[in-house]
């Protein structure tokens, strides 16, 4: 078991190394040059150019640049943004909690609603309630997150101006305003994620509810409620948990979009802004943070799996 964990962690480390190399390569491949961003496109002399290049280490070969970049990044130093003049790390520290809060809240809400709703749907499979839920699902799957956001904005502008006319306020400044400013973004992103959780729970439960041991339990006179919530759910859980890994990709993508719609100062918005202003250190840093979070959480889900499913423990 311990050996397996060590091997997994080693694998994760290797993937992360490859990811960092790819992110660095992307940064290097983005058209344009950091020096010209700093010096300005016109009017700079060749000497000024060279001086800046040397100061930033851009005159060195790419592999050397990569190693330097990675070494600094591991110490939390992502360089200084040529656009804002601030250290990239300080921006990340400011942006990260916003995205994290939204992500955690989304997972909380989607599980709290999606899991019970999925069970109910499975137990009432193909009856009116279930059909209603599934039609809603089909609609949600056919709609991109930003469309949900826009629709909510439309509804909000008319019926809930209190939620609509709120710009992001940090928790430390005004908790009430903070909650109000997070409500719409959370609603937007939690919608499709909840639908997915429910869909997965329903499918997983349905499969388990027809399994021989559940039929046996039923034949043996175990109470229906006990069957549904204890026997079946316990066995339906592992696939649902694995599914979180898949949801996560959509969740992270959703964060970028939602932060953009509602002007939340999170990582996603930071990344888009950086791409538009050709803020190279910022682009690579935000991309790296997103990818790292994705890889690590997926690895955690992998490690969690054997705890939920005894059959996986022996492997």
């Amino acid at each position: 078991m311990l050996k397996m964990i060590v091997m997994r962690l080693l694998g994760v480390a290797l993937v992360l190394l490859a990811v960092s190399a790819l992110v660095f390569a992307f940064g290097a491949l983005i058209p344009g040059d950091m020096t010209s961003v700093i010096v300005g496109q016109e009017g700079a002399t060749q000497e000024q150019f060279e001086a800046v290049r040397q100061r930033l280490g851009l005159d060195k070969p790419l592999p050397v640049q990569y190693v330097n970049w990675l070494a600094n990044a591991l110490q939390g130093d992502f360089g200084t943004s040529p656009i804002t003049g601030r250290s990239v790390a300080s921006d990340l520290v400011r942006q990260f909690p916003v995205s994290l809060e939204l992500a955690l809240l989304t997972l909380l809400v989607s599980t709290a609603i999606g899991l019970p709703a999925g069970i109910v749907a499975a137990v009432h499979a193909n009856r009116r309630l279930d059909v209603l839920i599934r039609v809603t699902l089909l609609f949600t799957f056919s709609v991109p997150i930003f469309v949900i956001g826009i629709l909510l904005l439309l509804v909000g502008s008319r019926w809930a101006p209190d939620l609509f006319h709120v710009s992001f306020t940090p928790w430390s400044e005004d908790p009430v305003m903070h909650v109000r400013s997070m409500a719409m973004p959370l609603l937007t992103i939690a919608f499709p994620i909840t639908a997915m959780t429910m869909q997965m729970t329903r499918a997983s439960m349905l499969e388990v509810l027809h399994a021989p041991y559940v039929v046996t339990a039923r034949a043996g006179g175990v109470r229906e409620k006990r069957i549904e919530y204890l026997h079946a759910l316990r066995n339906a859980l592992p696939p649902i948990v694995t599914f979180i890994g898949f949801q996560l990709g959509i969740l992270l993508g959703g964060l970028i979009v939602v932060e953009q719609i509602f002007s939340l100062p999170g990582l996603g918005r930071g990344m888009l802004e950086a791409i538009n202003t050709r803020d190279y250190p910022m682009v690579t840093a935000t991309t790296l943070v997103f990818a790292t979070a994705f890889v690590i959480i997926n690895a955690l889900v992998d490690l969690l799996y054997p705890l939920l499913d005894p059959r996986q423990r022996g492997r």
């Binding site: 993937v15 058209p31 990709g249 992270l252 970028i256 791409i275 991309t287 997103f290 990818a291």
Partner: peptide, 24 residues
């Protein structure tokens, strides 16, 4: 296979965004 695993290490929209940034 390994190189695809690395691509899978990125959330899809994030990868698309960064690729557009690279490709223009």
């Amino acid at each position: 296979n390994r190189s695809q695993d690395v691509l899978f290490a990125f959330p899809t929209l994030l990868l698309a965004i960064i690729l557009v940034a690279v490709l223009g």
